[in-house]
Design a binder for these strands. Structure first.
Lengths: 335, 335
DNA sequence: TTGTAGGCGTTATCAG
DNA sequence: CTGATAACGCCTACAA
């Protein structure tokens, strides 16, 4: 069934070395022998055993992926799409290690090494989730997605959070809003912190006061948006717009407004962050900041491969631009 | 950095054979040497090179996965949860072969073999999509998910479509509905056909007539649900409930009802199939049939491993029960 | 242009 | 109980 290089060599009437040369595209093979070998190779469907090749070449053409389990967020889907495309381009396969657990005796890093994984993609984690030091210190090329970690052989990639938030605040401002509330994401996360900081900064840039009542701590999820908004609505001096750190929390915000007998956008404008599939189907369709998730995935792989091939390339720290998608959840403030 | 077995042997002052024996849990090693070796192993973080091991043992402890839309498949994430658990249990890793299309010169099967993949999970395909014969005939252990294909070394696993649909129809019936419309999934697909058949059967079981105007051919997607429902609404004798083959088409159905100035569930009850994340956030929250995706993933791996380890185990054909999640999109029919 | 042979890191057989 | 040593399938100097 599984033929090996020796059998191919025999069938073609040449030596093993010659077959190997043909398979690896060496030029020092006469056209005639090359053709003869290829003939056999195609007939038999021969393909070199990757384990054997790995052993001698010390390259597995395999990238590892390490993600939080159970994350069904649409964000990850698109990310994977981008990863896949780049994988094809670069000729790598992707292995998912059913880790025995990060801390166990057989650590993740050991597993990676044992599998000869050339590089790793990490996403869905927050800084405090795990001790990534071991991975970084192992100097296995690594790209963290949405997590600002780096080391001699690792770096990160993320959406341009700062600019995005600023643009959204500016947009609201241009719509005459002056009382802009904010619902944070998880503040333990890189993106959550950054977006919050950016909100404060954007306010300051516009000469708007920072009002702590206008900020609600959230966790990306819908209920936190709902709860925060409810609190905003109970204020004497209500905000006129709410900027949310995620679409899901924006959806919660919209529901809270609705449940209070008010309208989006007439009584309150709402902006989300992500542009998940659902957002365009909402009523009203949600104005939001679209992350170029596909691009993030694609570049993550490209950066990783660069890191692999170039041992002294500096730790990457890439930001991917976002886009403000204007739909119908914001309107001019008439106050 | 990456120590090999020889260095471990030297450090421990034993032969490589002994180290190997310790690593593989042989009993023919004295407690003392074993301890000494383990000491070094733990200190150095040594783990045998899997490529070398693979070469001699002819087992890669690797399972492959093959998905329709690649990594982007919507259910992949959910499936992965279950897969991961079983993977851990069984000690396998999962590899995604990105560098190859099904039809290319270097076929999928060749890649699988070259990578020494022990078994494959196939997901998201319809029968006509590809010629799976090559895979089946290659006798590489395979589990098809939601596709009723099998061979000497392959079988399938799926949700219990029949029962699920029957339960939904019965539920509608218990709510006094007698005119129950149906939006099909792609009829080329295994699940699509089965669900449709089950709908007819359920009607018959209840002594309800089959009305062809109450059936719209869909393709799982939202627009097909929208279009079908629009047609239903134009009927003189409108149905009072719509059973959809997927949540997405149910969402389309709900929108069509809304756009017609009617209400769900007061004017029309709607049921979906899948219980995607989005469904609980709809207004009204969608009553739907939840697939136990986790369990499917988990069992798929378990069946596969069984197939791998037991060459003459019969082709599996497993059905995983579903659950009717009752939310607010159905109500009692007052006609 | 072709072939020979050593070595990649392990496991497994078989003597000691 | 321990240790040589021959595979495993392939790549790559080096020799012919």
């Amino acid at each position: 069934m599984g033929k090996n290089i020796r059998e191919i060599a025999e069938l073609a009437g040449v030596s093993i070395a010659t077959v190997s040369k043909v398979m690896n595209g060496y030029t020092s093979v006469s056209a005639k022998t090359k053709e003869k070998v290829m003939q056999i190779v195609n007939d038999t469907g021969f393909m070199p055993n990757s384990a054997a090749r790995e052993l001698v070449k010390k390259r597995s053409m395999t990238l590892g992926i390490f993600l939080t389990n159970g994350l069904t967020h649409p964000f990850f889907q698109k990310l994977l799409g981008g990863i896949e495309v780049a994988l094809k381009e670069k000729g790598y396969d992707l292995i998912y290690l059913a880790q025995v657990g990060w801390t166990s005796e057989y650590s993740f890093v050991r597993h990676l090494r044992s599998r000869n994984v050339e590089g790793v993609l990490v996403f869905g984690f927050q800084r405090k989730d795990l001790n990534f030091d071991e991975l970084i210190q192992a100097e296995i090329p690594t790209i963290f997605i949405d997590l600002d970690l780096s080391g001699p052989r690792s770096g990160y990639i993320t959406s341009e959070n700062r600019q995005s938030i600023k643009r959204a605040v500016d947009y609201l401002y241009s719509l005459n809003h002056r009382k802009i509330a904010f619902i944070t994401g998880t503040l333990e996360s890189f993106a959550g912190r950054l977006r919050f900081e950016a909100y404060r900064q954007a306010l300051e840039d516009l000469g708007l006061p920072y009002v702590s009542e206008y900020v609600a701590a959230g966790n990306w999820e819908k209920p936190s948006g709902y709860a925060g908004t409810k609190r905003f609505l109970a204020l004497d001096d209500r905000p006129t717009a709410i900027l949310c750190s995620s679409d899901m929390s924006a959806i919660g915000a919209m529901e809270a407004v609705l449940d209070a007998g008010l309208s989006v956008p007439d009584d309150l404008s709402v902006i989300g962050f992500d542009d998940i599939e659902l957002s365009q189907h909402l009523r009203p369709p949600l104005t939001t900041i679209r992350q170029n998730t596909f691009q993030i995935g694609k570049q993550a792989v490209e950066l990783l491969v660069e890191l692999i091939n170039n041992p002294n390339s500096p730790p990457p720290a890439e930001s991917i631009p976002t886009e403000l998608i204007i739909r119908d959840s914001c309107t001019i403030c008439r106050e």
